[in-house]
Amino acid sequence: MLESIGVTEIDPGAVIDTLTFEERKALSNWQSVIYLSKLWIVDETTTALTVNGRDILYKLMQNIRDQGGAVLFISHDIEEIMKICDSLTILRDGVLTAELSKDEFEEEKIKQLMIGREMSAHYYREDEKENYQEEAALETKNLCCQSLKDINVVLHKGEILGVGGLSDCGMHDLGKAMFGLLKPDQGQVLMNGANKVKSARWSVEHGIAYLSKNRDREALMTIYCIKIISVFLRLKIWLKEES
């Protein structure tokens, strides 16, 4: 089945837990289209896929269309929308803004319809600059940890700092290390220039939060939820019997 859609790098006999997040995400998508249906809804899926995963997904979408089916493709990536889609429906704040055919696709026009105003070279709000301070809120010094090698990053107070890259480039390890989930092999993470980040518990106590990329596996304590529900049900049954 995997070979039929061009997937050769994943071992069908592998245990799911041994695969990367991207591979698991891709498998869940491919699984839904192995038995081709007339309508396939793809909602913001490509953001979690590698370049190869995206190419496979695009081919599957085209195959469904060519076989008489339809694909509802939801995305904020204008470049891939213009490349893949035959028609475009634009929503803004839940309201239908426009419906465009392929020959009407223009990047600037789509952006304007999406945000409700013309885009210029100036993207940022002026008032946010007033909150910026030179003082560091969080920083790393010569940080080495797993995929990270000698990383020096400074997050200033009042600043929004974005770190991006391809899958497995180390950006998620950086977030975990700055939060205290990963212990540095070398270097350190400092809060307010002096306080060393010791652990995730220490970070929470000092007002630092971390949102995991893989929230269903790393951010939810499902085993404890199950235990709590189990205790609640037993208590409910006991109270009913007592009454």
Rank of each mutant, 00 (worst) to 15 (best):
S4P: 01
I5D: 02
I10N: 00
D11V: 11
P12A: 01
G13R: 13
V15G: 02
I16L: 11
D17R: 14
T18R: 09
T18V: 03
T18H: 06
T20L: 07
F21H: 07
E22K: 02
K25H: 08
A26F: 13
A26W: 07
L27K: 02
L27T: 03
S32L: 08
S32T: 07
V33M: 09
I34T: 12
I34C: 07
Y35A: 12
L36K: 14
K38I: 02
V42Q: 03
V42K: 07
E44F: 06
A48L: 11
L49Y: 10
V51N: 12
N52F: 09
D55T: 13
D55C: 07
L57G: 09
Y58F: 15
N63T: 12
N63S: 10
I64Y: 06
R65C: 13
F73Y: 15
H76V: 08
E80I: 14
D86A: 06
T89Y: 12
L91R: 00
L91K: 01
D93V: 00
G94E: 11
V95C: 06
V95Y: 06
L96D: 05
T97G: 05
L100G: 02
K102S: 08
K102N: 03
F105R: 00
E108G: 07
L113M: 12
L113G: 04
G116H: 05
Y123E: 08
Y124S: 09
A137Y: 08
T140C: 00
N142F: 01
C144A: 05
C145Y: 02
Q146T: 04
Q146H: 07
I151G: 00
H156R: 15
H156Q: 15
K157Q: 12
G158A: 07
G162N: 00
G162V: 01
G165C: 08
G165H: 04
G165S: 01
L166T: 12
D168N: 15
D168S: 15
G170L: 00
L174T: 00
L174M: 08
K176Q: 14
K176I: 03
M178K: 11
F179L: 02
G180V: 01
G180D: 05
L181G: 05
L181V: 06
L182K: 01
K183G: 04
P184C: 03
D185E: 15
V189C: 05
L190G: 10
M191K: 09
K196N: 05
A200R: 02
W202I: 06
S203N: 07
E205V: 04
Y210P: 01
L211S: 13
R217V: 13
E218K: 15
E218L: 14
M221H: 09
T222N: 12
T222H: 13
C225I: 07
K227M: 13
I228K: 15
I229P: 01
V231E: 13
R234Y: 12
R234F: 13
R234W: 13
K236P: 00
L239S: 05
E241A: 12
E241F: 11
E242H: 10
S243Y: 10
